[in-house]
């Protein structure tokens, strides 16, 4: 299953590349754009990134595997991230994590059979004063209670 960037995405990558003196530096923006287009990063995706930027595929692999936000397996339509680090833990973060696991019936990095939800236990998200918190894809939900979490999950279509 070969992967090719859309015309528009090729243009976006070129815009990013111009910001750096070397092509290699555009690898992170390129991986983000690829993940937007393909949902997750496969071997074919990495080959295309390497080709477009003129870098080694092994360098792309090295970067993809270093960061937690680059996914090499599909995630759900709604990727739920629950923080359990100290400030959230002190305000019920683990209870929220248990609640989310139980409600959706999956464990860390698991995806529900219908592909709608995946969950991840994450480190501090920079919302400690508004704990406990979760993120759904790119959106933060803060100052949570068990009821609010239930509401949020139920509202996701």
């Amino acid at each position: 299953m070969s992967f090719k960037f859309t015309e528009e995405n090729l243009k976006r990558i070129e815009e990013e590349r111009k910001k750096y003196p070397e092509s290699l530096a555009a690898v992170m923006p390129a991986i983000y754009i690829a993940q937007e287009q393909n949902g997750y990063i496969t071997n074919e995706v990495m080959a295309e990134i390497a080709d477009v930027l003129g870098i080694d595929k092994v360098d792309v692999l090295g970067v993809v595997t270093f960061y937690t936000m680059f996914h090499t397996k599909p995630v759900g339509k709604y990727h739920i991230q629950v923080c359990t680090n100290v400030s959230c833990m002190l305000r019920g973060g683990y209870e929220i994590w248990e609640q989310v696991k139980n409600k959706l019936g999956v464990d860390n990095m698991g995806v529900t059979p219908d592909g709608k939800f995946s969950i991840e236990e994450v480190e501090c998200m920079g919302a400690c004063g508004y704990a406990p918190m979760i993120a759904v894809n790119e959106d933060y939900y803060e100052n949570l209670t068990k009821e609010k979490v239930e509401e949020i999950l139920n509202s996701l279509k």
Partner: peptide, 11 residues
């Protein structure tokens, strides 16, 4: 990068 647990100031 603001990732130190307890820090949420730069945002």
């Amino acid at each position: 990068d603001e990732s130190e647990p307890g820090s949420f100031k730069d945002r």
